[in-house]
Each structure stands twice: as C-alpha cells, then as structure tokens.
Design a binder for these strands. Sequence first.
DNA 1: CACTGCGAGTAGACACTGTCTACGGTGATC
DNA 2: GATCACCGTAGACAGTGTCTACTCGCAGTG
Lengths: 196, 196
Amino acid sequence: MTEQDRDLRARLVAAGIELVTEEGVHALGLREIARRAGVSHGAPRRYFPTHRELLAAVARHGFGRLTDTLAGADALAAGTGADPRTRIEALARAYLCFAAANPGMFELMFRHDLLEGSGTELRRSTLPLFRTFVGLVGELHPQDEDPTAATAALWANLHGLAQLRTWGSLALATGSDGIEPLLGATLTAHLGPATR
Amino acid sequence: MTEQDRDLRARLVAAGIELVTEEGVHALGLREIARRAGVSHGAPRRYFPTHRELLAAVARHGFGRLTDTLAGADALAAGTGADPRTRIEALARAYLCFAAANPGMFELMFRHDLLEGSGTELRRSTLPLFRTFVGLVGELHPQDEDPTAATAALWANLHGLAQLRTWGSLALATGSDGIEPLLGATLTAHLGPATR
DNA sequence: CACTGCGAGTAGACACTGTCTACGGTGATC
DNA sequence: GATCACCGTAGACAGTGTCTACTCGCAGTG
C-alpha cells in the first residue's frame, strides 16, 4: 500500500514516469496516466489544471534526475582529483548515457510543444549545472575571456549526438564501437586532444 | 484554379506544408489538412493509408527543400572558388538558417514518432549531401584517414544548435549577435581557426 | 449527537481526433 | 447506351482532453 496512500499528485507523476519509461511519450495520455494511477479520468484535474501541466511535472522529475546524474558523475570525477578535461569527459559521457538509458524521458524533456508555458522554468533548473560546466571549460581554456559560448557549443554538440542517435541518423557514422568515436571526435574538437 | 486541378495527393501535401509553416506541427491533424485542401476527412485515405504516411510525405518535401538549400549554398560557394573551410561554413550557416526559417517543418522532419516507418527512407535522402560534407572535411583534415566521424560530430553540433535554439535554451549564451558566436565557436572547434 | 460545509474523486457530456466502411456519382471503355 | 472502376462523401466507432454536475466521507461547530 505504499503506492496507494501517497497523495494523488505524486502518484500521477509516478505513473507518468513509469509510462514514459516503459512505453514512450505516446503513452502519456491524460486518461492513460489516470488509469495507471487507478483513478478516474477527471481526477488529475484537481491537481493539474491541464494535461500539459501534468506532463511538465513528469519532465521536471526528468530534469531532476538528469542534474542528479551529472552532478554525481562530476562529483565522482572531482573526488579522484581528476583534471578539468577528465571531468568534462565524465559529464559528457553521463549526458549521453542518460539520453540512451531514458529515451522516452529525454524526448519528453525537449518536446517544447508539450511543455509550453513551463519551458523556461524547466530550463532554469539546469542552469547551475551549466555554470559548473562553464567553469570547467574556462579552466581548460584560460585564454578565452568568456567560455560561455564555447561551453554552449560543446553542450549543443552533445545534445545533437544524443538526439540524432535516438533518431538513428548516426547509424552510418557509428561502427561497432557505438557512439564512442563520435564522442571522442567531439571532445577532441572542443577541448583539444585527450590527455595521455 | 491552378491549385484546384492538381491531383489531390499533391494538394494534400501542399496543404500540409502550408499548415506546418503557418501554424506548426500541432496543426497537422488529418482532418485539418483535408479541410485546408477542401476535401472531406476521408479523402486522404485514398492516397495515404494512414495519417503518418501523409506527414511523412510532407516531411519528405522538407528534406528535399533542405538538400536543395544546402546544395545551392555549396554550389554558390564552390562557384566562387572558395576553399573547403569557407564552403563548410556556408553549408553550416545554411543549415541553421533553414531551421530558423522553417521551424515547424524542421521540427516535423526530426519527429521520429510521427515518421515511424518512413524514417530510414527519409534519412537516406540526405546521404549524398552528407557525403559531400565528408569530402570537404576530408580536404580540410588530410591527416585523418576517415573523416566520417569528424563530419558526423560537426553535423551533430549544428543540429544541436538548431534544436536548442528553437527550444530557447541558448538564450543565455546568445547575446545581441544571435547564434553567430556559437556558430563561430563550433566551426573553430571542429575546423580550426577561421582563415583570414 | 446532529448538522453543515467543503474537498476529493466519479461520471457523464461535449467537441474533436484517426480509422474504417458503405454509399453516390462521374467519366472512360466496350 | 450500359457497365464498371475509381474517387470522394458521409456516417459510425472508439478514443482523446476539457468541462460540469454529482456524490460521498469526513472535518468542525452548535
């Protein structure tokens, strides 16, 4: 009964997370989520005035998981006294791993048409992580007075890799090593050759 | 009457293009497209067995326009005897311009959930362009034995920039110059500093 | 204890969607 | 001129998100 006696709001979000994980974004109908949570289709309205706000709450959880994952990966690397380049590499790999491990959630998180209205708030939640990212890139490129642009370009590269992989567009560029060579090329391009 | 007497198949695709351009992907309902084309909601079924196949035809047109745009930009640059680096820059800028000028179509083209089944065929249509891209990168990096990975990484970077811009995520990294600094950072990272 | 009032969830209606099927009606062929 | 294939219409069907009664249980108060 641990599931049942939580308040409905949390149960609905949990049901959405289950559904998007198991079935994908297309399964996130309002009535479908309500069914999974064991309530009638009108019940969610008491907590989420519209379907999109419920989806935004699910996506919010996804952003939380993403930042937790990345922060964990960075803390692990930083704890071993790794240099900035290695820490960035750990972050990049964690980002791609998250997208690959949670394709449905990752897709939802960047479906701005489903998240309209809550988009800016969700984006804002990733800001602190982006700032540490900027700091690491700044450590690596001290000659640049503002590493924000370089960091954003690197992040866009990672995001594009994640997105195109789920679309299957990288099939002809990825061999048996999967996306590793592309990640390597990306990191080398933006950060210089790997430290040996 | 030039619109009316074309066969319905082409008129439906044209209506879809209009709708996605004017209103966005959300306006691409089957019945909405049929209304715009001036026929009943059952008519499309004669030519497109399912809604998704109609959307795939619309996206196919988008891919055609994209390859045309890029090929035109490259031919223009190549005609003036530009070096590979300049040609790549022209292609990259054309890609971002296309995404910015046709946000709805660009979104549709990479909505794999709407295009399921036709995805591989659509991807294949961009292959020749990708090959010329690979050739240009190869000219620029003769030391690499296979520039495919480097090209794919660069393309993923451009795609990520286009995608994140439409999502608004680059607002804090883009100043008054728009996306130009990020494009510059991307090209510098992947191709080396700009030729002077 | 009886009563009231409110909040949570139910259930049905509404307009809309994509798919399916039966039906007209028009034009080409024999 | 009759036949027939094909194109588009129109309605049914299950499903959706939203909106609106309504019911029921349980708190607080007399």
